[in-house]
């Protein structure tokens, strides 16, 4: 067991690759932060736009959401990275990843936000409207807050699982964590870099995964 342990985690190699992996880790964090920022903002904006009930617009939103939910993220990424240049649209790998994951998160979070908006009781709308607030004011001051609060558990879950997909960036050679680990592993012909990368992922996502369950069970009790 000790031998195997040493094989998967060789201290010397770990120390040598740590700076590279840390660099990759920072890129992963950046990709995640940008995805969450753009994805959730766009998702919320789309859900709000949908509340106005403008049929042609809503058909567009639902179609966008459906397509982004139907296609695997990797397929979208590959299309953006390899197909768009054929039409003279060039996006570098880093931003292609951010764009892909933001669109995917936007689609999934739009559905979640929308579910929240529709589950706010009609009386809340009427309370606001009856005091002279406009539709937009009622949406933003009264309905949205309650909608978002209601959907925090599924939203957290989905955001975490989509954010983990930043690892896909390694496929288009963005030097994020997994990419760095793979190339270091090839260099040393030893799995230690992968183990270290796994530990990085574990350190970030395991607490989030546990946290999201906490949030969920706290909400479940409230209901």
């Amino acid at each position: 067991m000790g031998e195997i342990g040493k094989f998967f985690f060789d201290g010397t190699i770990a120390a040598a690759v740590l700076p590279f992996l840390f660099e990759g880790f920072l890129v992963t964090l950046q990709l995640s932060a940008l995805t969450i920022l753009f994805g959730l903002s766009l998702g919320l904006a789309l859900a709000c736009a949908r509340a106005y009930g403008i049929t042609p617009l809503n058909v567009l939103i639902v179609t966008f959401v459906d397509i982004l939910r139907s296609l695997p993220a990797l397929v979208i990424l590959i299309c953006i990275y390899f197909v768009l240049p054929e039409y003279e649209i060039r996006i570098d790998a880093y931003w292609a990843t951010v764009l892909t994951l933001s669109l995917v998160l936007a689609a999934f979070s739009e559905e979640i936000f929308w579910a929240g908006i529709t589950s706010v009781s009609k009386g809340q709308w009427e309370g606001g409207l009856s005091t002279g607030l406009t539709f937009t004011q009622t949406l933003f001051y009264i309905v949205l807050y309650q909608a978002v609060q209601m959907v925090i558990p599924p939203l957290t879950n989905k955001t975490i699982s989509i954010t983990k997909n930043t690892a896909l960036a390694s496929v288009v050679s963005v030097s994020e964590l997994l990419n760095q680990a793979s190339s270091q592993q090839a260099l040393y012909a030893n799995p230690t870099p992968l183990t270290v990368a796994a530990l990085f992922y574990l350190a970030v996502f395991a607490p989030l995964v546990v946290l999201s369950r906490r949030i969920e069970s706290r909400y479940a009790v409230k209901r």
């Binding site: 009427e126 009856s130 002279g132 406009t134 009264i142 309650q146």
Partner: peptide, 21 residues
């Protein structure tokens, strides 16, 4: 003019419809 009309007419609902937040 809906918003103007409604500011001149107050409404009290069966279910109160207070904003919980």
């Amino acid at each position: 003019t809906l918003s103007k009309i409604r500011r001149d007419i107050g409404m009290v609902f069966q279910a109160f419809n207070l904003y919980p937040h």
